[in-house]
Design a binder for these strands. Structure first.
Length: 443
RNA sequence: UCCUCGAUAGCUCAAUGGCAGAGCAACCGGCUGUUAACCGGUAGGUUACUGGUUCGAGUCCAGUUCGAGGAGCCA
């Protein structure tokens, strides 16, 4: 019966068979130490010359990295054994080589970014990438389980969308028979229709943005979950967000200790992630950034932190703000002028809107953007006109406010940025199996 | 789009304008506990491309291509 490496701790003393790939190998005289991975972990398989026939020992001695193989032997606990989780090894009695790999390009040594990205189809086998993508899978599962268990109905929103509502600079254009279509950069507008049928909904899928961004936090294709809730104001929305994000983090802590260890991520940075998250208004955030700026010695950093009321935050501002807290931080009440047309203004203070960004700690930046939506059809129409948007394209969207309009709110959470933060990783490109960036469409 | 930096062996990188080098990987040999092992040996080059300066260019100059970091952009 086949066993997985993850289950070896329950098979000590038994003879098992592992099907996998040779991750690394070293030898010492009459011993060959093979690191075998099977997708669930890495385990050391020790080939001792006296325990196997000569052909098997000779084959093990010369087996190249990433060859596929089937090994059979007795499981034993040994604190010297490396691997994931480590501490267990197999004393090999027999081995079948399924395919000898030749000249596998990625070695356990250091490599550059371009080389690794060119070899992304192979790089995902490396332990750090393996760990990141397993955490990503946990994050996606935790998102779905939290929403499903809290009464949200998953809705599929379209990826092909009609004529661009507000310029095409950030949209990928595709041919649509004799017409043009655009790849969706949000499912929100459709979800605002869905809530009137289902109350609480979410969509979860890839989104596309043709931004010419060249930073560690941008992809042109990324995954976003977008819940939308009827009868929900901004305060209630923030409570939903902090509960869901906390659930995601706690699920990873419960299920991915091995992966976090491989990544060198200190769990102590995550254990305290629980409601409530701190909240700060845009007004106070500007003041806080100015204070940090005043205390900054470095003239270049001082200039990057320059900000006046009315400006949107740049990456340096977000970083400075989040370093003041050890939990994700809500920033509420952004100027309406820098936010989307559909955001509800504050009563008596129309220059700011009921919007909230959630900024991850340690400078990982915005992981959620959300807001209360305008529910009054006349105000919505005025905002569409103010921003010079084509009314015709929004006909159906405005109509939602004519047939039983209610206060409602929603948000979008970026999966890759969330994974990057939880894993303590440098760049979002490693948080998705095959990243799409401005200069990368291969493999 | 802008700023900065880079491109040399399969990989990561050295080389004052003067013989093209090392480590790792590969290959051969040694070692019964390796953790990116260690030790000895072998093989491996259109120095991104185009042009220029020079007795002589990997090195200096100009242009091109590709990449990295940052900024901008990011309803």
């Amino acid at each position: 019966m086949d066993t997985t490496i993850r289950d070896l701790n329950r098979r000590i003393g038994e003879t098992v068979t592992i099907k996998g790939w040779l991750y690394n190998r070293t030898d010492k005289g009459k011993l060959v130490f093979m690191q075998v991975r099977d997708g669930t972990g890495i385990c050391q398989a020790v080939v001792f010359k006296r325990d196997v026939d000569e052909a098997t020992f000779d084959a093990a001695l010369h087996l190249p990295q990433e060859s596929s193989l089937i090994v059979t032997g007795e499981v034993r606990a040994d604190p010297r054994a490396p691997g994931v989780p480590g501490g267990y090894e197999i004393g090999v009695r027999s081995m079948q080589i399924v395919q000898r790999a030749e000249d596998y390009p990625i070695t356990p040594k250091e490599h550059g970014v371009e080389f690794l990205m060119d070899n992304r189809h192979l790089w995902i086998r490396s332990t750090k990438q393996w760990a990141l993508l397993r955490v990503r899978a946990t994050v996606m599962r935790a998102i779905r389980s939290w929403l499903d268990n809290n009464g949200y109905v998953e809705m599929s929103t379209p990826i092909l969308t009609p004529s661009a509502a507000e310029g095409t600079t950030n949209l990928f254009e595709v041919g649509y028979f004799d017409d043009k279509a655009y790849l969706a950069q949000t499912g929100q507008l459709y979800n605002e229709a869905n809530i009137f049928a289902f109350g609480k909904v979410y969509c979860f899928g890839p989104t596309f943005r043709a931004e010419k961004s060249k930073t560690r936090r941008h992809l042109t294709e990324f995954w976003m979950v977008e819940p939308e809730i009827a009868w929900c104001d901004l305060d209630q929305l923030l409570e939903i967000e902090e509960q869901m994000v906390s659930h995601i983090v706690q699920t990873v802590l419960a299920e991915n200790q091995n992966e976090l260890k491989v990544l060198g991520r200190d769990p102590a940075k995550l254990t305290h992630i629980a409601p409530p998250f701190p909240r700060i208004t845009y007004d106070d955030a500007i003041a806080a950034i100015k204070q940090v700026q005043a205390q900054t010695e470095d003239p270049e950093q001082k200039q990057l932190l320059d900000i006046t009321w009315g400006m949107d935050f740049g990456a340096p501002h977000e970083t400075a703000l989040t370093q003041l807290y050890d939990k994700p931080l809500f920033v509420t009440g952004f100027p309406s002028a820098v936010k989307a047309f559909y955001m509800e203004p504050y009563p008596g203070r129309p220059e700011v809107c009921k919007s909230a960004d959630l900024l991850a700690p340690e400078g990982y930046g915005e992981i959620i953007g959300g807001s209360e939506r305008i529910s009054d059809p006349d105000l919505l129409l005025r905002r569409i006109h103010d921003q010079g948007l084509p009314e015709e394209a929004y006909k159906w969207y405005i109509e939602l406010r004519k047939f039983g309009s209610v206060p409602h709110s929603g948000f979008g959470l970026g999966v890759e940025r969330t994974v990057t933060w939880i894993c303590g990783t440098e760049h979002v490109r490693e948080a998705i199996p095959f990243p799409r960036t401005i200069y990368r469409l291969y493999p």
